[in-house]
Write a protein that binds this DNA or RNA. Structure first.
Lengths: 142, 142
DNA sequence: CTTAATTGTAATAAACACAGTTACATTTTA
DNA sequence: TAAAATGTAACTGTGTTTATTACAATTAAG
């Protein structure tokens, strides 16, 4: 199974940006086509990151804490805390082997810099840009 | 479980670059600290990508097809054919919802450009650089 | 020519991650 | 007080990854 949490989270954030109103997990789940509990788990992560507020009780739901141009995909990415792009071999190294002994250090640096490349890329994309793309594409297909 | 194929593959390639000789799957597996069959599966992928040759039979094993400065981490990455960094939601969209209908397109573009960022980064790192780092670090820790 | 060592590859098992689901206490509004 | 929603735990089912066993095919050594 592929991890779809980031895609789900961006979808949820885009829905909230699109509507501009408070939406409940049921409504969001219908748009993502998943279960409301899956959505609520993501809402909690996004809430912990300060990207949205949630209200319990009747007429509860979630809404963005700030406007979409002030939210980057990197912030959503970090809220979800995804697995690292490149995993490191955590096994014990073969002590007599120089390559085995150094691979962890070397690959950690490769993994970190690769992560940096992804983060720089996502930091440059705002929720506003995603929203605009959704709106113009939707308009075109009408 | 975390996918470690890329790390394993870079380790294997670095071992072959370091030794400059033919190494068998047993020897490589000892350095990576995994099973020889796991190594052989990766060797097949690396062989299919033209990065090394393998010989069956007694005194068999693998060796690089060219010098480490002509091999990039991107070539190793592509040989392994890893899962995409960002997964797309493949479920049916909610037809009445503009966001739901457009998310697949929008996220596909985000996923593609993110993949590009990773690829540009890995293309700039050569096996020679990895090898040098291993050698200098090993020398320092002696 | 026989034996031993190695790859190539299939089949299966074990460990783990993820999404889905049910359930329910808590919160809030009507 | 009832209804509707979140927060959250527990469990299930499915898919992914690595490990392992097994063995045919290949190759070199003696």
């Amino acid at each position: 199974m592929v991890n779809q949490q980031f895609t789900f989270a961006v979808h949820i954030m885009t829905m909230l940006a699109f509507s501009g109103e408070k939406l409940d997990s049921q409504r969001l789940a219908a748009s993502v086509n998943t279960n409301p509990v899956v959505v609520r788990r993501l809402l909690m992560a996004l809430h912990a990151a300060g990207l949205l507020t949630t209200e319990a009780g009747r007429n509860g739901g979630a809404r963005l804490t700030r406007s979409p141009e002030k939210i980057s995909l990197l912030q959503i990415y970090d809220a979800i805390e995804p697995r690292p792009i490149i995993a490191i071999n955590r096994r014990r190294a073969a002590r007599h082997c120089p390559v085995s002994c150094q691979m962890k250090n070397v690959m950690t640096s490769v993994a970190t810099s690769t992560d940096g490349a992804v983060r720089r890329h996502l930091r440059a994309i705002t929720l506003q840009q995603v929203l605009r793309k959704v709106k113009t594409s939707a308009a075109r297909s009408r």
